[in-house]
């Protein structure tokens, strides 16, 4: 009785571990660890509101900050820490005016890391993508 249960438990545990570690072993064997999504940067622009490294890491937090600032506090101007330029805090009217192609910029990275931000359910992506 006890030994039969032990067997079942062990088999169950093995199946669980195999499934749970699927992402690890699948990408180790099938994945391309050297792959980096290639982003299309706006032509003719030299700088973003903050440094490239900062934006790469923190753009989502910056956008949330902008959102709360504009919607809830009515403060609409952002001064860059990197180069002290003033910007209108607006996803559609500032970010996407330079990054006119969402598919080749936002989506490439978001698809790669498997996130699907809900911004675009309401915010309008630039026509440049068409």
């Amino acid at each position: 009785m006890a030994s039969r249960d032990t067997g079942r438990i062990v088999v169950g545990l093995v199946i669980f571990l195999v499934l749970a570690s699927f992402p690890v072993w699948f990408s180790a064997t099938q994945g391309r660890s050297d792959y980096r999504p290639e982003l299309e940067y706006p032509a003719g622009e030299t700088k973003c509101v903050e440094s490239k490294e900062y934006m790469r890491t923190w753009h989502m937090d910056l956008l949330n900050q902008w959102r709360d600032s504009v919607v809830r506090k009515g403060v609409r101007t952002y001064t860059s820490d990197a180069h002290h330029t003033d910007y209108d805090m607006s996803l559609q009217n500032t970010c996407m005016k330079c990054h006119t192609n969402k598919a080749n910029f936002c989506d490439r990275c978001h698809d790669y890391v498997g996130v699907s931000p809900k911004c675009w359910e309401c915010h309008v992506e630039p026509r440049g993508a068409e």
Binding site: K118, C122, H123, V124, P126
Partner: peptide, 25 residues
């Protein structure tokens, strides 16, 4: 004719006149 300088809404939220606060700004 979607205006690209103002967002649309998504299903499941409430909306109404905002006295054009984006224009007042």
């Amino acid at each position: 004719d979607i205006q690209s300088d103002y967002p649309t809404r998504t299903k499941g939220v409430v909306e109404k006149c905002n006295f054009c606060e984006e224009r007042l700004a």
